[in-house]
Design a protein around this nucleic acid. Structure first.
Lengths: 342, 342
DNA sequence: ATTTGTTCCGTTAACGTTAACGGTAATAAA
DNA sequence: TTTATTACCGTTAACGTTAACGGAACAAAT
């Protein structure tokens, strides 16, 4: 890399120095036919010496292929998302695709803005982790058959590719486990109730209760309203304190995710509860740290890496499909109960 | 967004429909002077209807400003890095800069490749977290005064902007704490010894020993060779098992980072050691989870967010500097001992 | 009436790269 | 010798956008 007054060397500069046409230089750099071996190596040498670096913008503008996808998630530092992202990254690298990742922080306006930026950058497709109540921003994309795959959430109404976990089964298994362990009063701590993950897990919760003949009580479902990204732990902690202050009774808690469970466990321990003797706790996701905390967290294992890996595969299929089909693919990933000590 | 046979609408298409020149459309879209209000709104309406999305590649090629920086780290899912990244992201958003992030996984070849890609994408500057033994790949960048800031590591030899923690102080405080707590045999578990972080912390370790009159023993420093990203916990765990099998005696362990400490604590607990009664453990970084594990981890707090935030500021200064100066900035961040229960 | 200025829009060229086409010289085939 | 073939390279134009310049039309000032 060399620059003259912070301007990069162009193909034209090389051509001039080598005494050939710009196109010949292009031929040499892209190892195309129609060029002699001698001039080719001579040009490559000069290019090397001059510190030539291809201008991706010119190339892409000309060729119209970016080999880039966009990924929009709410918080890539969240262990769940970062694990899924690894799957995406792996799959993308295998197909030699670039990734532009953006963190919406769960804010709809950011999501809108990011989508616009990604389209301006002519990404071939988008992987979106829906986190909002509204999906207006992607309505047109779907309508126009722009390659897009929704990850981790299910949107019934639309005809769009999706990959997500069997949330009902997860909620069911978690709750059933608590009930069969002897818990009589099982609370559920969840966040927003407008997405398929929360709703599915809640449905599983109800299903398990019903199966065991336990009446469902609205008050046992605790909603954490709009958890600011990075504050799930705090939200779980606060909810327990709130419940204790309200003198509510419980001997089992099913948490929307592991991070909330961490906060729950912290609050319980600080208030003298033994886990699992006094209160049993079940999390969701099975992120790395869940086997490191004390007690080790019983949780629902989600196939995070697979979710990311498969999501890219689905998107790739869309991108490389000859014609845009009207039918969409929905992939459901199985979940698993991991019994530990909580 | 609308496309005709997966081709986007161009400014020319709009011009044709509106019966004006392409340049007039450009004027309307970029709200420049030299255009009447009536035609402007008319064009904007048509553009809206046709679903126009600006082609960033054409704009950038013409204007030559990308407002983009590249960030290369080894593993953005590592809590330490993701925290630093948040600082970068915040600062970048404030200046309306885009970020291209790449995970090298600590592999030199990846780093080389990524730098090339970033240059092709004409980033205005690069934030690099050096993880390798060799720095050859950035030598030319530095020589050519390409805006670059090294984050988290110190490279003495070169004249390059750097921001890093006071590693010697961190290692010193951690070790001193263990010694003053009464530990007689303090081990240190670290990783590669060729970067400034490891070396600095080791120097601090030695300094504290010396100050307390404890002889330094080479065997007390345990090296984890080439920890694969994401396996720090396992590495710490393995080292303790190894030490126990070797019948080594110790009552204090200073870990290179919190993740290693987690593994150390897990191994100790599994083998019946009480923490901190039998063995005291001190980590490094103070990532979020360190106050959630049992026992809560005593550690050295590093200003992660600030590191990222400041790193961008330094890079921004370089980018916007009128002329490339030969002098470089080195910023050292203070560290802090957080005493908890380990 | 002439000059000056202003408003608004079109024309041209350029950013860096590359595909399509054409042309020249040398070589092989007739 | 003539023709066809091949190897190699240059010319031109285009990708989508925008800066620089120019010019027409009209209003205001002299």
């Amino acid at each position: 890399m060399k620059r003259i007054q912070s301007k990069f060397v162009t193909i034209k500069d090389i051509a001039e120095k080598a005494g050939v046409s710009p196109n010949t230089v292009s031929r040499a750099l892209n190892s195309r036919p129609d060029i002699s071996q001698s001039t080719k190596s001579r040009i490559l040498k000069i290019a090397q010496e001059m510190g030539y670096v291809r201008n991706a913008y010119a190339t892409i503008l000309k060729s119209n292929v970016t080999n880039t996808i966009g990924v929009i998630m709410s918080d890539s530092s969240n262990p769940f998302f970062s694990e899924v992202f690894k799957g995406i990254d792996k799959a993308a690298q295998e197909k030699d695709y670039q990734i532009i990742i953006m963190n919406s922080e769960g804010v709809y306006e950011n999501e809108e803005r990011f989508i616009k930026t990604l389209l301006e950058r002519r990404v071939d497709g988008i992987l979106l982790f829906p986190m909002q109540e509204s999906y207006e921003d992607i309505r047109e994309l779907v309508k126009e058959h722009f390659p897009i795959v929704l990850v981790g959430r299910e949107i019934d109404e639309w005809n769009v590719d999706e990959i997500f976990s069997d949330e009902v089964k997860g909620g069911y298994m978690a709750t059933k486990y608590l009930l069969e362990k002897g818990c009589k009063k099982v609370k559920m701590i969840t966040d927003q109730l407008y997405n398929s993950a929360s709703l599915g897990r809640l449905e599983g919760y109800r299903k398990a209760l019903q199966e065991k003949g336990v009446p469902f009580c609205e008050e046992n479902v605790k909603l954490c309203h709009h958890i600011h990204e990075g504050y799930h732990v705090q939200a779980g902690y606060d909810k327990v304190i709130e419940m204790l202050q309200g003198k509510e009774e419980f001997d089992g808690i099913f948490c929307y995710n592991d991070l909330i469970a961490y906060g729950v466990i912290k609050a319980l321990k600080e208030n003298g509860f033994r886990i699992p003797e006094d209160v049993s706790v079940v999390g969701y996701d099975d992120i790395t740290f869940s086997r490191l905390i004390e007690p080790q967290l019983t949780t629902i294992k989600v196939k995070k890496f697979e979710m990311g890996y498969e999501a890219f595969q689905m998107l790739y299929k869309r991108i490389t499909a000859k014609k845009s089909s009207n039918s969409s693919t929905r992939k459901v990933l199985d979940v698993e109960l991991i019994v530990r000590n909580s």
